[in-house]
Measured scan of single mutants.
Amino acid sequence: MSGNGNAAATAEENSPKMRVIRVGTRKSQLARIQTDSVVATLKASYPGLQFEIIAMSTTGDKILDTALSKIGEKSLFTKELEHALEKNEVDLVVHSLKDLPTVLPPGFTIGAICKRENPHDAVVFHPKFVGKTLETLPEKSVVGTSSLRRAAQLQRKFPHLEFRSIRGNLNTRLRKLDEQQEFSAIILATAGLQRMGWHNRVGQILHPEECMYAVGQGALGVEVRAKDQDILDLVGVLHDPETLLRCIAERAFLRHLEGGCSVPVAVHTAMKDGQLYLTGGVWSLDGSDSIQETMQATIHVPAQHEDGPEDDPQLVGITARNIPRGPQLAAQNLGISLANLLLSKGAKNILDVARQLNDAH
């Protein structure tokens, strides 16, 4: 009898209710805020589980004197976190989706994509230029951005401005803007500013005609071990179906173009009346040469937790077992079709030249 009692006690200790789920994140304040929001949602869904947040620095956090596009290494903000995932030191990792490459290392998958916040870019102005827009900034004003995508589009749109690289986390960039006289304004992701509670610093939100956004911008991705079915089931509740389908289309477009950090590629997606609209573009580094096109596809946005595919093969690095396969494939095909259209119009040449120029500098 006593033996059975011990077995029952052991089973209770090993039951999922007692389990601590370890969540990996970057150390920056924004990353911690984003991770806290994901953990809060998981806690609400699984009140019996405990969650421990483990923060670590990544290569991208450490190399702050070089433009991201020049470092010449993929997975700048993800490699150390993936290493911890691989060694079973954490069970899942919360990322900004735009930091996750469209091809993940073997053994990993994006197990959830959370509801997207505003994906557009924002302009934050130096205190002396508050009330201005990019259009009304004085001639030769210097605007800071760490992104080739932003610089290429904005140089084309605002030729009277000069664009220079600015690195560091959000706090560091804002301090550089406010305390030094080098920059009249800087460009940042609206979602990051909003998550930090800095709505009052948003001086201008850039519309798609001015600057399309990065693939996955404004959404959070939760990376897990691809074979860890328990954790895949656990994080599945975080999937937002519309965000998922938009981001599958965007990531398929980028992957098929073979774009990345070192080339200016941008997108804009919208879901309306059962249609998914995808606009994508590529630019030369100075913005003088560009190709942009829009395509659409009829896609039914499923309700969360309709029964999805059981075999769960990944699409552009994403596993969404609780979302039907048909809409996911339709979104992926839309991204591939748009990429093929741009490639047929000469996108590869623009991107190759951009890559060579970026590598040469």
Rank of each mutant, 00 (worst) to 15 (best):
V39M: 08
A40P: 03
T41Q: 07
T41S: 13
A44E: 13
S45T: 13
S45I: 15
G48C: 11
G48S: 11
Q50K: 15
Q50T: 10
F51G: 09
I53K: 11
I53M: 08
I54V: 10
A55W: 08
A55P: 11
A55G: 08
M56H: 12
S57G: 09
S57V: 14
T59F: 15
T59K: 06
L64E: 00
T66E: 13
A67V: 11
S69N: 12
S69E: 13
G72S: 13
K79S: 14
E80S: 09
H83L: 14
A84N: 08
A84K: 08
A84F: 11
L85N: 01
L85A: 07
L85T: 06
E86W: 04
E86S: 12
V93G: 07
V94H: 07
V94F: 04
H95D: 04
T102N: 10
P106C: 14
G107W: 15
F108S: 05
T109H: 08
G111C: 03
A112F: 00
A112H: 02
K115C: 08
E117L: 09
E117K: 12
N118E: 14
P119V: 10
D121P: 03
A122E: 05
A122K: 03
V124F: 07
K128I: 12
F129E: 15
F129T: 09
V130Y: 14
T133P: 05
T133I: 10
E135F: 11
T136G: 10
E139G: 10
K140L: 11
V143I: 13
G144C: 08
T145A: 15
S146E: 02
S147R: 04
L148D: 06
R149H: 06
R149I: 03
R150F: 00
R150E: 02
R150I: 02
R150T: 01
A151K: 08
A152C: 10
L154V: 10
Q155D: 06
Q155I: 15
Q155H: 13
R156I: 14
R156G: 07
F158I: 12
F158C: 12
F158T: 13
P159R: 10
H160W: 10
H160E: 12
L161N: 04
S165E: 06
S165K: 05
G168Q: 02
N169S: 12
N169H: 11
L170H: 09
N171H: 10
T172K: 09
L174R: 07
K176V: 11
L177H: 02
D178R: 04
E179F: 07
Q180W: 06
Q180C: 15
Q181L: 09
A185G: 15
I187Q: 04
I187C: 06
L188I: 03
T190G: 11
L193P: 09
R195I: 12
M196K: 05
M196L: 12
H199K: 14
V202Q: 06
G203C: 13
I205W: 00
I205M: 09
P208N: 03
E210Q: 05
E210D: 09
A214D: 02
V215I: 03
Q217S: 09
A219E: 01
L220G: 04
G221T: 07
V222G: 02
V222N: 01
V224T: 15
V224E: 05
D228L: 04
Q229N: 14
D230C: 01
L232S: 05
L232Y: 05
D233E: 12
G236A: 13
G236D: 15
L238S: 04
L238C: 04
L238E: 04
H239Q: 08
D240I: 06
E242P: 13
E242K: 10
E242N: 02
L244P: 04
L244I: 02
L245E: 03
E250C: 01
R251Y: 03
A252L: 03
F253H: 05
F253T: 04
L254K: 03
H256W: 14
V265I: 08
A266E: 05
V267K: 07
H268N: 12
H268D: 05
A270K: 15
M271V: 08
Q275K: 12
L276K: 01
Y277F: 14
Y277K: 05
Y277C: 08
L278G: 09
T279N: 14
G280Q: 03
G280R: 02
D286S: 07
S288D: 14
S290Y: 13
I291M: 13
E293R: 07
E293D: 14
Q296A: 02
Q296H: 14
A297V: 05
A297S: 05
A297W: 12
T298I: 02
I299S: 06
H300G: 12
H300C: 13
H300E: 11
V301A: 12
P302Y: 08
P302K: 05
A303R: 12
Q304E: 14
H305P: 02
E306K: 15
G308C: 11
D311F: 03
Q314I: 07
Q314T: 10
A320F: 03
R321T: 09
I323F: 10
P324H: 14
R325I: 15
G326R: 06
A330V: 15
A330F: 07
A330L: 15
A331M: 04
Q332F: 05
Q332Y: 14
L334K: 02
G335A: 03
L338A: 15
L338K: 06
L342T: 07
L343H: 14
S344D: 15
S344V: 06
A347Q: 14
A347C: 03
L351M: 14
D352C: 02
V353H: 15
A354L: 04
N358D: 00
D359F: 06
